[in-house]
Amino acid sequence: MKESTKMLLHYVTGFLILVTGAIHLIANNLERFLWIKSTLWYPISLGIFLGAVLYHAMNGLRVVLVELFPGSSSGKVISTILVIVGVIFFVSGFYFLLVLFGGW
């Protein structure tokens, strides 16, 4: 993936975190909006939130590490490790969402 694509996704997921994070906060704290939690959109927004946070965090970590440890081979190692960690966290998080909202 080109670096520009990775960074564009970084900015897009940053925006998604704002939006879905806001939905999560509002739905859990404001009485007028508690009904959101009983809609299908809520778990969907949580799924998007999970994916966005993980991508944003892992890519952010990648950027920091790639600067601290410059080199083409170290860059590949860092990216591979972070992708694996990110996928593991996403799968676990998605499983919990299915248990909470899907009745698994």
Partner: peptide, 9 residues
């Protein structure tokens, strides 16, 4: 320019 150590850093 559009590489790991290019303008995006």
């Amino acid at each position: 320019i559009d590489s790991e150590h290019g303008c995006w850093r």
